Simulated assay, not measured.
Amino acid sequence: MEGFLPAQHALAWSAISAPFVVAGARRLKRVIEERPEARLQLAAAAGFTFVLSALKLPSVTGSCSHPTGTGLGAVMFGPPVMAVLGTLVLLFQGLLVAHGGITTLGANVFSMAIAGPWVAWATWRLAIRLGLPVTAGIFLAAFLGDLATYVVTSLQLALAFPDAATGLTGAFAKFAGIFAITQLPLAVAEGLVTVVVVNALVGRGMIRIEGARP
């Protein structure tokens, strides 16, 4: 939440996230120039992320558990584009619904809009290489992308607030263990919802899922 991270951590995560967002903006510009018809699909991916990630449940003090919704966009457009879409979603949520915040934006962007989408995209590409069914690949991409977000969030919290006795490792285990209680079922639900949405969009001819390039 706003103001929860120490200032040096907030600044560091902002600096780490910035190059990914800049690269994503360039990639997004190319996508729109090469495929003007993709604007509606981009809006759908951003809207899906906004709606799912706004469904939050209290978890660790200063944070919460929620679906992320970034797997869909990562599969459709690749993780660089999702860095931009996810940043816009997190910015609007921080400004309009008090979910996250401006000082913690960089940390939230890295966990939800960068780490999660890269894991989702890599999972999707691996599923294609292994010849898995599309529905299985989509489910795994959304499921693991969601979990990756909270693994990174747990690390971010552990770095900021190491345990007095067990240090970084103990704090990470504590945060990850608390998140797992709510996040595992949420990740399963997100995977199933993403499969349903993709099947509906493909059935209506609104999108083609062939394996996005980064």
Rank of each mutant, 00 (worst) to 15 (best):
A148M: 15
Q93R: 02
T149P: 02
V97A: 13
S154F: 06
V60Y: 10
I209R: 09
A12N: 08
A45D: 11
L126W: 12
I138Y: 01
A141E: 02
G116V: 04
I102E: 03
G69A: 04
F20G: 10
P133K: 14
P214M: 07
S53F: 02
P19D: 12
M206P: 00
S17G: 14
G205C: 12
A160N: 05
V202A: 15
L201F: 11
A141G: 07
V134N: 10
P133S: 13
A171P: 04
P214T: 09
A200L: 15
E33P: 00
L126V: 14
I178K: 04
V195P: 02
I114S: 12
I181G: 03
A45M: 13
T103I: 06
T182F: 13
F110P: 09
T68P: 01
L184G: 03
L85T: 08
V21A: 12
S154P: 07
A180K: 02
A38D: 00
G47C: 14
T149Y: 04
L130I: 02
I209F: 15
A120D: 04
L155N: 03
F179C: 09
A180T: 09
S17T: 14
T61V: 11
A10G: 14
T68H: 01
T49N: 15
V195D: 02
V195C: 08
A142W: 00
G205R: 12
G94N: 10
L147C: 12
T70S: 10
D163M: 04
A43C: 10
A12H: 11
G131Y: 06
A120Q: 07
G3K: 06
L105E: 11
L55R: 01
K56D: 05
A187K: 06
I138G: 00
R125H: 04
P185M: 07
D163E: 11
P185R: 05
G101N: 07
S17C: 11
R129G: 01
A171D: 06
L168R: 05
P185Q: 07
R213E: 15
L11E: 11
P133F: 04
T103R: 08
P80M: 05
L55M: 15
F92Y: 13
Q156K: 10
